[in-house]
Design a binder for these strands. Structure first.
Length: 581
RNA sequence: GGUGCGUUAGCGAAGUUGGUUAUCGUGCCUCCCUGUCACGGAGGAGAUCACGGGUUCGAGUCCCGUACGCACCGCCA
């Protein structure tokens, strides 16, 4: 036993106690014959003081040494308000070095100057810092609340296989070669989707799992190749039941973590979200909905606008109030480049002030059209209108992305606000230009809306599903759906996807068969634990909330994974590596 | 697969139209200091300027390529 107290717990009331502490030397301040050491562990920092008679004990102690000290708790004359333990110090009479340490490659403090790649290489040092440590603790707090709420409602935690079967639709799988079956592979699960549905058929009517998932796709600031899903599924239930359960979980988490208990969960249909915000995960912390102004310009003198409408495109407009004087020509050039990334051909903008118009389309549009636009949009002095005339999906997506960017840049977002919304009735299918066929927008086990059942195989473009997302502050926090639980309907969906009987049997055979033995109606969700932790800890970098994350190219800078293996290992698995020339 | 930005002491950055000994902060080491808590003061060590090629009398600086990192688009049932 190296300690009887942590470095975060001693207070004024402990005055006079003789204590034993252990931890890392966070900082050493040598004032001559008196030496102060900030001793750090997971719980905090306590100042240890070595007076003239004992300063030799720490003569050779350096930063990040692990030491055990014994001494008497003393109330400080000048407390340090920045520390929880700032009112006391420990006057030491003993110090044992448990472990020495090299000079660290980075400064271990809340504010470090190290860049992210260095922090990833020495992640175990980075974890000693509060900003990372606190996020791991928050993540633990969240899963604790989740388990508590779900267990309280009779949900059962079940672990499903990591060595599972490759699923042909969707993201690329990570594969694991089989030794006993040469030439065959396990796949790491992209989600426990099929297993949890089989658990429903198995009668585990309320299931959850804190499940690791793997997807071999390119990464982003909010995406890692392996991530954790709070996976929930329930039987004899529909949207209302699962929404209620998820809302209950979210409320409990926000209450515990933030002390917030006035959360709201509005619902928006997918088509409306795209129409108003140009996104299926709109950030509702600010308004600025897009407005369709196609009607105003269908006979415009401005050929670009007129032709766009006559060719079936749309003109979408965004208004930002009272900012015209803040946005320079250079800014609009930047915005134009920004929307081009989303395939938009151009960005039109108009400033309005004191009955004067200016901006990129000021000369192209006649006065009467500009005034009609002003009246339609109720423009006031110093307002700006941004417009994109393009194909519907491009105009919506590009302007939606610009809405988000401007919301951030113009400071329209209240960082202390948490805005949830359910996005419902996603499209059942989307057309894959690459594969030249309809593919599932969610996954092929998603139930269609009742009113769209007859469109399943005949009108894929207008068939909507009972899939839903929960969005929080512009992040897709979870996805889920009511599942298909009858074999005929499932067959129709496979048919619409253009799958042959042979393909269905190979890909989903065991799964489909299970539905012939009595499947309850069921639905569920998978909540992105990292995204939730990110939002609650105020970071936009997923690596901050993962203990040992990968880089944007799926590499571990600390362990150098993935790595090559011995020929022996390859031989066991019956694998040959193709030589690149 | 694509686009953009970046790579200079342990760490973070500066480095002008290409020109002599590559600058600053911090960390590290030594010495001084009894109340610091971003301690203070004095001194010192520490750089194949990512790698490979090219232009040039001369390259940290210009050009080409590669690697790595970051962000975004595609992708992510």
């Amino acid at each position: 036993m190296n300690r009887d107290h942590t470095c975060g717990e001693l207070r004024k009331t402990d005055e006079g106690k003789y204590v034993r502490l252990a931890g890392w030397v966070s900082k050493r301040r040598n004032l001559g014959s008196i030496v102060f050491i900030d001793l750090r562990d997971r719980y905090g920092i306590t100042q240890i003081t070595f007076d003239e008679a004992h300063s030799d004990l720490v003569k050779d102690v350096r930063n990040e040494y692990v030491i055990e000290v014994k001494g008497t708790v003393k109330v400080k004359e000048t407390p340090n308000p920045k520390l929880e333990t700032g009112e006391i110090e420990v006057l030491a009479d003993s110090c044992i070095v448990l472990s020495s340490a090299k000079t660290t490659p980075m400064i271990i403090a809340d504010e470090t100057d190290a860049l992210e790649d260095l922090r990833l290489k020495y992640r175990y040092l980075d974890i000693r810092r509060n900003p990372i440590k606190d996020k791991l603790l928050l993540r633990d707090k969240i899963t604790t609340v989740v388990r508590s709420v779900l267990h309280g409602d009779d949900f059962v935690e079940v672990e499903t296989p990591i060595l599972s079967k490759s699923t042909p639709e969707g993201a690329r799988d990570y594969l694991v070669p089989s030794r006993l079956y040469k030439g065959r592979f396990y796949a790491l699960p992209q989600s426990p989707q099929q297993y949890k549905q089989l658990l429903m058929i198995g009668g585990m009517d309320r299931y959850f799992q804190i499940a690791r998932c793997f997807r071999d796709e390119d990464l982003r600031a909010d995406r890692q190749p392996e991530f954790t899903q709070i996976d929930i599924e329930m039987s004899f239930a529909d949207e209302e039941d699962i929404f209620a359960e998820v809302e209950k979980v979210m409320k409990a988490i926000f209450k515990e973590v933030k002390g917030i208990d006035n959360l709201e969960f509005p619902r928006i249909k997918y088509v409306d979200a795209m129409d108003k915000y140009g996104s299926d995960k709109p950030d509702l912390r600010f308004g600025n909905e897009m407005i369709n102004v196609s009607e105003l310009f269908k006979e415009s003198e401005f050929g670009v606008f007129r032709n766009c409408v006559s060719e079936g495109g749309v003109i979408k407009a965004l208004i930002f109030k009272n900012v015209a004087d803040k946005l320079s020509r250079k800014k609009f050039d930047e915005f134009t480049e920004f929307v081009k990334v989303y395939k938009a051909k151009a960005l039109a903008y108009l400033k309005y002030d004191k009955n004067e118009f200016s901006g990129s389309v000021n000369n192209a549009l006649p006065l009467n059209e500009k005034e009609a636009l002003r009246d339609f949009l109720k423009l006031e002095n110093n307002d700006v209108v941004l417009m994109i005339a393009d194909q519907k999906n491009i105009a919506e997506t590009a302007l939606g992305a610009l809405r988000k960017k401007l919301g951030e840049e113009l400071g329209l977002i209240d960082k202390d606000k948490y805005c949830f919304e359910w996005i419902t009735e996603f499209p059942m299918y989307e057309y894959s230009e690459e594969e030249n066929r309809w593919v599932s927008a969610h996954h092929p086990f998603t139930a269609p809306r009742d009113e769209d059942v007859d469109k399943l195989t005949t009108d894929q473009a207008n068939c909507y599903s009972r899939a839903y997302d929960l969005v929080l502050n512009g992040y897709e926090l979870l996805s889920g759906s009511v599942r298909i639980h009858n074999s005929e309907m499932q067959a129709k969906v496979f048919d619409a996807l253009g799958l042959t009987k042979e393909q269905i049997k190979n890909k989903f055979g065991f799964f489909i068969e299970a539905f012939e033995y009595g499947a309850p109606p069921h639905c569920g969700v998978g909540i992105g634990l990292e995204r939730l932790t990110m939002i609650l800890s105020g970071t936009d970098n997923i690596k901050d909330v993962v203990a040992f994350p990968k880089t944007a190219s799926a590499y571990c800078l600390m362990s150098d994974a993935p790595n090559t293996v011995d020929q022996d290992q390859l031989d066991f698995l019956g694998l040959d590596i193709r030589k690149e020339d």
